[in-house]
Computed example of a mutant assay.
Amino acid sequence: MSTEGNRGAPEPGVDDAIRALLLLMPRMVGRAKRIRVPEELQSLALAPRHLSLLSYLLFDGPMTVNELATRLEVAPTTVSLMVGELSRKGILERREDESDRRRRIISITDGKRPSIDGWLARGAHAWRQALGPLAPEERQMFVRTLRAYEAAMTVDEDD
């Protein structure tokens, strides 16, 4: 059932919002799937899990395995395996941290950076356009809502 909003226009009820999202989500997934992987990266068999790792390195710069693990919400051993795999493919490089030689800093290789940037920048730009006009609280609510949706879908997978 709809309720009246501040501007006099009816606000969608939960069922109305679900109907809108049932149309929108497949379109978004379809568009994301159509983003062409750069030719030089196609043979590398990159999986969706690699995209988040590459995105963090691209947009936030080089970081340690532990920092990546925290951001990706996975174990450091998982990140180490991905970094090893992507390093062998020439996508990532490891170097010593100048301030602590025991630590390794992970970064995208200079040779692959332009391709990865061109590939992932469009999505980041689209999110910036969509989220930029929102107030910080609204952005937080949007992210919380997507996390809640993902968690609810995960629960259904476990049944």
Rank of each mutant, 00 (worst) to 15 (best):
E98L: 11
R101E: 12
L86W: 02
A121H: 09
L22Y: 05
L23Q: 12
T109Y: 13
E40W: 02
V37M: 12
D15T: 05
Q129G: 04
S52L: 13
L22W: 04
Y56H: 14
V65N: 14
H50M: 01
S107M: 00
T77S: 11
R101A: 13
V143R: 12
A152G: 05
G132T: 07
R19H: 05
G61C: 06
D156V: 10
L53H: 03
D15P: 01
A148K: 06
V37A: 12
V37I: 10
R122Y: 13
R144P: 00
R71E: 08
R139V: 15
D100T: 08
L54A: 08
R94P: 01
V37Y: 10
I35M: 15
L22N: 12
F59R: 06
G84M: 03
V74H: 04
R147I: 10
L146F: 14
S115Q: 06
Q140G: 09
V65E: 04
K112N: 02
E93R: 14
D100S: 02
I106Y: 07
L134P: 03
M25H: 08
K89T: 07
G84C: 00
T145H: 11
Q42A: 14
R71V: 01
A124D: 05
V65G: 05
K112D: 02
L22G: 05
D15R: 13
R122C: 05
K89Y: 01
H50D: 15
D16T: 07
N6A: 10
D60T: 05
S80F: 00
R34T: 08
M153P: 00
S43Q: 15
E96V: 10
E157V: 13
V155E: 10
A126T: 06
I35P: 01
L53V: 02
R34C: 09
P38N: 04
K89D: 03
L41F: 05
I106C: 05
D156H: 05
L22Q: 15
L92G: 00
L54P: 06
I91L: 14
T77K: 09
W127M: 14
L146C: 09
L146A: 15
A45G: 14
H125F: 11
Y149H: 13
G61R: 02
E157I: 09
M25N: 02
V37G: 08
P62A: 15
P10G: 03
A9K: 07
F142H: 09
R113P: 03
I106N: 07
E40M: 14
R139H: 07
G5A: 03
N66Q: 10
M153G: 04
A45K: 15
S43R: 11
L68M: 02
D110P: 00
E98V: 12
E11A: 11
K33W: 03
H50F: 10
S2M: 08
A45M: 12
